[in-house]
Design a protein around this nucleic acid. Structure first.
Lengths: 335, 335
DNA sequence: TGTTCTTACGTCAACGTTGACGTAGCGCAA
DNA sequence: TTGCGCTACGTCAACGTTGACGTAAGAACA
């Protein structure tokens, strides 16, 4: 900047004015400065600018998601980007892979970077460690999972309701032996979905069968193995509720392998790109990622615009998308 | 920092030493400083630190991709993140949606942010505008598409070879009327894929039928409409090469709708999550996104470590994954 | 004519941090 | 004792930028 000023024959302050489009520079001077900047390959240093300015906006929002390669996180990231970029904000994305330590590391990195806001799909269960940031005024929005021990905005899905909806749908199709495969025991969404499943059974007066609720099913392969094991029970399930997208994939693969894909009903939690092209087409509980991302972005922007008030907790209702796999009637028990 | 220094009864420089883990602070002082920092909710300011330091690494790498919500870009982003985070780099992701202006805007934003490196899946066709950044030493790696008018590293896929492989596979299955749906006319990867398709036809001595090569097919719906139109030709194709993931989806949908999914062979370019569960399972040309992202990350890290030398152009061979849809034999022409 | 206002600049310090360098105090060898 | 080296600090300026404020020259007005 000093060099540009010298070449243009003005002061650094004038260069600053031109660069920032502030008034107080004549057209002639403006042009001279721009030419000099061009000639010297001058680039504005946003870091220094942020440091000096009063309102110090870094223009960065951190998005800590489960896995940006996963279609759910990826869709969310995209929707978030669309909501934030028009406001001049860039998104720094990170995958947590359910590792609490990673979450804490990345949060502290983002805090040191003076991020303007945080979007968090937490891998941790307690969030007291964020209280001081919250108090310091850092806007935060939790997605998919609620904050615990921390007062901040959140956008979640009614997991209990969704799982109940799915289970009730299977029950009303005549199923009584409904299995559920669920994620890690202590992930909140998984807990809620299991509760929804049980609530639906209770409401229908169907006794809960412990052997049909399997949790800590991580990944596709484990889901497939679990389904195969379930099929070999003396009294196997006639329907399966898959607790999460990759579990659904594993489930479908296992049923395929057993040639049972037209005999066992399946409802998956989470929709995905080709779900309607699978044979039979997959009935799923769909979360509107697009909308969730947009809402998260909107809340964050409101907070950045200084909106005060108590935390907002938006709960979005998932919908049942019937495509065939969930409408398979219960088959005679093979014996 | 000043406040922490005062509370701990030391100078700011000592606080700096403690914060950065530099030697020259006794254990007692160190503890006092840490306590003071804790009490005052002190957070290190990375921006100021970067500004002052000589080697000024911002720790940010920009990833400008086609669409972070798309499974291809998302997978790449994830692989990139895995490669870069161990080196202490964070990834700032952005979607370009094939809009050149957006690319230029975001690049200049990243330059102003003093990003340590750029990963670019360009929406522009000429890249001279990046020459000055390149000269200034900003490491850049192009992915998926080669740089034009710019000397920098790239990791691409052999699109010509992939399309040729796909077409040859269909030809060897007995097909002669092979349609191809392709993306925007001027996207480089699309150009290469079309060339590969034609090269395969030429090699086999099959005459090129202009009505079977449709380009500028954007999005899924347009792909579906195009396929429907092709099926109504007097001499319809017996096989289709879909030029890109979403085109494949549209193609499969249209064939489904026409009840022709078991009659018309399909090979898709790009693999995607549930391709093996579709009925019939999709034969595709697979690009190893995981590997591509890892290679991009590796090259970038090498450059950041000061590796000089001429630009590296890594070309990765895609592979043919046979799953069924591409092995359907040509059917009698309905008349 | 003098006075005030406005425009187009310039000067200076500060944002939070760290590199370069200075110094006090102590241990230790000659 | 002197002199040297080492450790544990402190002082100061600078990184690139901008806010606060100052000023000279011309315009506008009484």
């Amino acid at each position: 900047m000093k060099d540009v000023a010298r070449l243009a024959g003005v002061s650094v302050k004038t260069v600053s004015r031109v660069v920032n489009g502030e008034p107080g520079a004549s057209a002639a001077v403006r042009q001279r400065v721009l030419n000099a900047a061009e000639r010297l390959d001058y680039r504005h240093n946003l870091g220094a600018s942020t440091l000096r300015r009063k309102d110090a906006r870094s223009g960065i929002v951190g998005a800590l998601l489960q896995d940006v390669g996963n279609s759910y996180s990826a869709g969310l990231l995209r929707a978030l980007e669309d909501a934030l970029r028009p406001a001049g904000l860039s998104v720094l994305a990170a995958s947590l892979d359910e590792e609490p330590e990673r979450e804490r590391d990345i949060v502290s990195d983002l805090v040191a970077r003076r991020a303007d806001g945080l979007v968090l799909m937490p891998a941790t269960h307690r969030h007291e460690y964020l209280i001081s940031e919250r108090r310091a005024g850092l806007p935060m929005v939790f997605v998919d999972r609620r904050p615990h021990g921390l007062d901040c905005d959140s956008v979640t899905v009614d997991n209990h309701g969704g799982a109940k909806l799915a289970t009730t749908h299977l029950l009303s199709g005549g199923h009584r032996r409904i299995a559920m495969l669920s994620d890690l025991e202590d992930i909140e969404t998984a807990v809620e979905r299991r509760a929804g499943y049980r609530a639906a059974l209770d409401d229908a007066g169907v006794e809960f069968a412990p052997e049909l609720l399997v949790h800590s099913v991580r990944g596709e392969l484990e889901a497939a193995r679990t389904v195969t094991a379930l099929l070999h029970l003396a009294d196997p399930p006639t329907a399966i509720l898959a607790g999460r997208n990759i579990i659904t994939v594993g489930t479908v693969r296992a049923l395929r392998a057993a040639g049972a894909q037209r005999e066992i009903a399946v409802v998956g939690f989470d929709d995905f790109p080709l779900a309607d092209l699978v044979e039979p087409a997959l009935t799923v509980i769909r979360q509107d990622v697009q909308r969730i991302g947009a809402e998260v972005g909107r809340i964050l922007l409101d907070r950045l615009n200084g909106e005060g008030g108590p935390p907002r907790h938006l709960v979005i209702e998932p919908t049942l998308v019937q495509r065939g796999s969930g409408e398979i009637p219960p088959q005679q028990v093979s014996r």
